[in-house]
Write a protein that binds this DNA or RNA. Structure first.
Lengths: 217, 217
DNA sequence: CTCAATTTTTAGGCATGCCTAAAATTCAAT
DNA sequence: ATTGAATTTTAGGCATGCCTAAAAATTGAG
C-alpha cells in the first residue's frame, strides 16, 4: 500500500469530515472517483492501520494519527500552491492541480525550506489557511458572499480552489483574497449580485458568489 | 504499469548504456536494486511498448522513443537539482535524492517555468549537462582528475553525483564545477594527489580523484 | 571442445488497489 | 411495521510489479 493512495484517502476523508461531518462510503467514492466497493475495502485497511475508525455501514472518521497525516498533506498542498504561485509565477487556477502531485513527494526538509522562503505563510493563493507543523491553523470566515446584503462592503477571504474555470473568471475581475468589494445590488429570487471592485462594476452569478467567502468591513 | 517505474528503468538503462554500452539484465538489476528475474519480466514489457529492443540472453538497448523519454527524465532531474540548489538553497549533496522523487511529477509547464527562471541553464550543480527540450546536450570533458600529471592546472567540469558523503567532502575544500585547481604532486602506485585550491593545499585520495572530471587550462 | 560457473529466463506466488455483480443492510415513506 | 429504494459490503477477478527456486542458455578455462 503506497503512501500516495493512503494520503489521498485521508485528505478526502478530512475534507468531507470538516464540511459535512459523517463520511459515507459513497461520498468518499464520489470524491476519489473510485467505486464504492473499492472504497469499503480500502477503508478497512486504513482502519487496520488505525488511521480511521470504521463501523460497517456507518462510515468512517479520522483517528488522531489519521488526522495528523491529513493535516500534514494539507500543509504540503497549500505550501506548494503558494510556492508555485510566488516562486514560479504559476497562475492561481493551475496551482491546485500541480500541488496534487507535488504534495506526495515533499520531504520535511524541503517543506521547511519552502516555508522559510515564503516567510512562514498562513494562507495559500486561494486564501485557505495553511496548517503549521503542529497541524494548527486559523480558520477562515464562513460568510458566503452569496448570503450578504446590498450595501455591504466586504473583503474576500477565501475562494474555493477546485474549479479552474471559476478561478480564471474571478481573476479576470481582480477578485482575489484580501481584495475589497462593495455589494451594490442583490437581485431577488437567487439572482446575480452587482458588485464594485477597484472602481469597476460587475455582475456576478449566484453560483460564483457561493464559492466566495468574505468578511464584513 | 506506472510512469515512475518505467521512467526509472529507462533512466537506468540510459546510464548503463552510455557508460558501458551493452545493458545486461544483471547490471540493470543491480542498479535498480531489483531481482534479475523481475528485471527480465519488466524488460519484456518495455520491449512490448517499443521502448527498448530486447533479445533473450542478450540484454537491452533503448529505442528512439525510449531514449526520448530517458532524456526527458534526465532533463527533469537535472533541472530540478539546479532549481533546488538555486531557489531553495539545498546543499549539493542533497539535491540528487530529492530530484529522484520530484522528477516524476514535473509537468511540461512547470519544466518550462523552471527552465526560464534559471535562464535556460546547461549544467546542473554537479556540472552534468542538462538536455534541452529536444534531448540535445553538450557532453562534458571525460578527463579524470586522477589521470592528470603533477604541474597541471585544471578546471573542474563535473563531479559524480551519487555519493552524498563525497560531495560534502569536496564541498568542504571548495571543489565545485568551474573551480580552478593546481596539481602539485601525484603520489606513485595509485597514491593520493596533492592539490591547491584557492591558495590552500589539500591531499586528495585516489578514489575521490576518480570521481572528478576536469579540463586542462 | 567440453563442462562447470555464471548469467538469464521461466514458473509459480504474493501484495496492492482497482473493478463488477450480487447480497446484505439501512433508510424512508406509508 | 412493512417494503421498496438506496447504500454498503461481500465475493470473485484482474493488472502491476515485485519475489524465490529451478531450469535453460551462455561463457570461458583448460
Amino acid at each position: 500500500m503506497q503512501n500516495q493512495v493512503i494520503e489521498d484517502y485521508l485528505k478526502a476523508i478530512y475534507k468531507i469530515q470538516t464540511t459535512s461531518g459523517k463520511v459515507a462510503t459513497t461520498a468518499l467514492a464520489r470524491r476519489l472517483k473510485i467505486s464504492p466497493a473499492s472504497v469499503t475495502q480500502m477503508v478497512k485497511k486504513l482502519s487496520d492501520m488505525n488511521l480511521v475508525t470504521y463501523t460497517r455501514y456507518q462510515g468512517v472518521e479520522l483517528t488522531e494519527s489519521g488526522m495528523k497525516i491529513a493535516l500534514e498533506v494539507l500543509r504540503h498542498h497549500r505550501l506548494i500552491e503558494l510556492f508555485l504561485a510566488e516562486a514560479l509565477g504559476v497562475p492561481w487556477d493551475k496551482v491546485h492541480e500541480e500541488a496534487e502531485k507535488w504534495e506526495h513527494v515533499l520531504s520535511e526538509d524541503m517543506e521547511d525550506r519552502i516555508d522559510a522562503l515564503l516567510g512562514h505563510p498562513t494562507r495559500d493563493p486561494h486564501g485557505a489557511p495553511i496548517p503549521n507543523r503542529n497541524g494548527e491553523m486559523v480558520e477562515t470566515s464562513r460568510l458566503l458572499l452569496a448570503d450578504q446584503k446590498a450595501g455591504q462592503t466586504v473583503e474576500i477571504v477565501q475562494v474555493h480552489d477546485h474549479d479552474s474555470e471559476l478561478l480564471r473568471y474571478l481573476g479576470g475581475m481582480g477578485l482575489y483574497p484580501n481584495v475589497e468589494l462593495q455589494i451594490l445590488e442583490v437581485a431577488p429570487f437567487e439572482g446575480p449580485l452587482t458588485i464594485k471592485v477597484a472602481d469597476k462594476e460587475y455582475t456576478l452569478g449566484r453560483k460564483a458568489a457561493e464559492q466566495i467567502f468574505v468578511r464584513l468591513l
